[in-house]
Design a protein around this nucleic acid. Structure first.
Lengths: 351, 351
DNA sequence: TTACAAAGCGAAAACGTTTTCGTGTTAAAA
DNA sequence: TTTTAACACGAAAACGTTTTCGCTTTGTAA
């Protein structure tokens, strides 16, 4: 087992100085053709690679991006990571991932672990618990220490940083309008409690769509689910609640679900009650994940373009990281980019 | 914006030496109670945190684990990451993720990016392309440089490193045996081409199960899919091939699919052909992902316990990283841990 | 008073780079 | 022969830590 070779070792071996070796490897004209060749040959032979950590220390940048997300076993978030990784790598950056597991404490700890020099900037989506508590001091502190943050999807409005968001309202509107145009008269929504910002926004989009089409919203058609991590018991409860929705509203002919799981569960329950999809009940979901695409019937859904969100977030962050200090002063503005949603029509709605 | 404060700055401000500050913060008895208090108060006020990069350089360890996986938008792999992250964090390590995207080149590049000091060791699952080319020089080189690797799921047998694998053969056997016990007489398998090791092993398990129950395998019941990244066209082709399977084998009453997608697609096709699940056709799949759980009918499936695999892999790696040098010599053995599979019975088989 | 130990602190090296500046040698120009 | 310029290389600082060793000062024992 040969240990990693360093400049110092090469220098010693070749009986030159460390500086000479360094320069020779970077093809400096200061160094004679002879020595250059000699050094480079030796370096190649011993497979020399500059030590990243030493470089980071010297340059005071790590070329690494910290990602903090609530969970990774989730189609949307993994898509976002794919996007981040794509442009990060293309621009010479690495990606280090922390999971908050929707917990405030883990979010804080993770940020602290990374903020001490390990990374140049953050890309993150806020944990539910943090959203509830509305305690954002760890974000402002990080930013105050000169480390830029880009938030995506679940963002906090009054934090000074770049943001990449989905137009949840508009996306939800598109979904509901699709149902309206397809002739649905009694459209129910299955959503989450309001503290999860996206649930709130999607509900708002639902209401706006109804309003614009002069449909009076009915409270009994709005089902708000307590959104814990979904254990199997919770799934049972979810089914019960949806069943109740159908039973107390016999006329329901359209469903807008704010995520795939609610949608497939609704379909499952509906079928059990003898409803045919999409003939007597049409369903639109949010998030174009594996369930939408491959369950039967496949789901008409609002795609959020997770990968694109990741790409954009990475681009924003790296752009800011690579701002020269001169440009820095003027550029105290932060951007909020809205990634358009797209309605993907499949079998759960009439065409 | 206050920049990050360093020992040097604190020292200057308090008019003591850097050494004193460092010692004071680490509660060294060399330092008087007075100075200690003073320094610690000041450090707290300015929110001092030691720079990780400097520590890494000094200690020659980064407390960071590099993960390289083929893709992240995949239930199994994200579960594994969750597991790795869990124990890594618990033991004070960070996790940095690289995606090979099933490409040999990206795998190599990613490893090079990380192997130069950024991390202490690797946890990885080999890209399909690498598996095909059987070019493993980047693994051996990394190991030769003293950086340990733990491989999981898709491993290369003759590389000297710890491994965490699924007993694919046994898992597949369990699945097929379930079908046999449930009365299936003509069990087909939908698998991948052989160079993907897991496809091969699962096929082997299928054959063994048949053999042990004195059933002659029929070539026409073995469908091998060219396993590219699945675009929508490929999905069409997949359906066509499965349809052909059913049409040329009218008697098929059981299907073992080596992944969820093949299973749901098979079910979809079967239904179109008028087959009832699980009455006239029973299906078992591999990988307990979101499709198995939430599609209709839900799938009986072989769970690989991805999270557990991740946890075990992380444990193996960190244990090795933290071996004292004394213990090191004796311990040149590598471990291969087999994580047992579990058959989870759901609606796609008779109970 | 002398000697010496303990207490409290600082200087410096080390981790592995890159880069600035200086220095010695050689060859060409005056 | 002397001056100068080009060339080739080395020393040292810097990034932010930790740690070893040595130095001063004080208090205590001889």
């Amino acid at each position: 087992m040969k240990r990693k070779v360093t400049l110092k070792q090469i220098a010693k071996e070749l009986d030159v100085s460390i500086s000479t070796v360094s320069k020779a490897l970077r093809n400096s004209i200061e160094i004679s053709e002879d020595t250059r060749q000699k050094v480079q040959a030796f370096a190649k032979l011993y497979n020399y690679r500059p030590n990243n950590i030493a470089l980071s220390l010297k340059n005071r940048k790590t070329k690494t991006i910290g990602i903090i997300i609530p969970e990774i076993v989730h189609h949307f978030f993994s898509k976002v990571i794919t996007g981040i990784e794509l442009v990060a790598n293309k621009r010479g950056y690495n990606v280090i991932v922390g999971l908050s597991n929707e917990s405030f404490d883990k979010e804080v700890i993770n940020m602290q672990m990374l903020a001490n020099g390990s990374i140049d900037g953050f890309i993150l989506s806020i944990a539910k618990e943090t959203l509830q508590q509305q305690d954002y001091h760890h974000f402002t502190e990080t930013i105050n220490q000169g480390m830029p943050i880009v938030m995506f999807d679940r963002v906090a409005d009054n934090i000074p940083c770049d943001k990449v968001i989905v137009d949840d309202i508009k996306g939800a509107k598109k979904a509901v309008e699709k149902l309206i145009h397809n002739g649905c008269k009694n459209i129910a929504i299955i959503t989450t409690r309001d503290y999860v910002s996206v649930g709130k926004l999607r509900t708002q989009g639902y209401l706006e769509a109804l309003e614009e089409h002069k449909i009076d919203p009915k409270g009994s058609l709005i089902l708000k689910i307590e959104d814990k991590l979904l254990s199997d018991e919770d799934l049972d409860k979810l089914e019960k609640e949806i069943e109740l929705l159908f039973k107390s509203n016999k006329v329901v002919d359209g469903i807008f679900a704010v995520n795939e799981l609610y949608a497939v569960t609704a379909i499952k329950v509906a079928r059990k009650l003898g409803l045919e999809i999409p003939k007597s009940l049409q369903v639109v979901s949010f998030t174009d994940g594996v369930l939408s695409k491959h369950s039967t019937p496949s789901l008409t859904t609002v795609s959020q373009h997770g990968q694109e969100i990741g790409e954009k977030a990475a681009q924003l962050l790296i752009d800011r990281l690579e701002l020269d200090d001169e440009e820095y002063n003027e550029e105290e503005q932060y951007e909020t980019v809205v990634i358009e949603t797209e309605l993907i029509e499949r079998e759960s709605t009439k065409s």
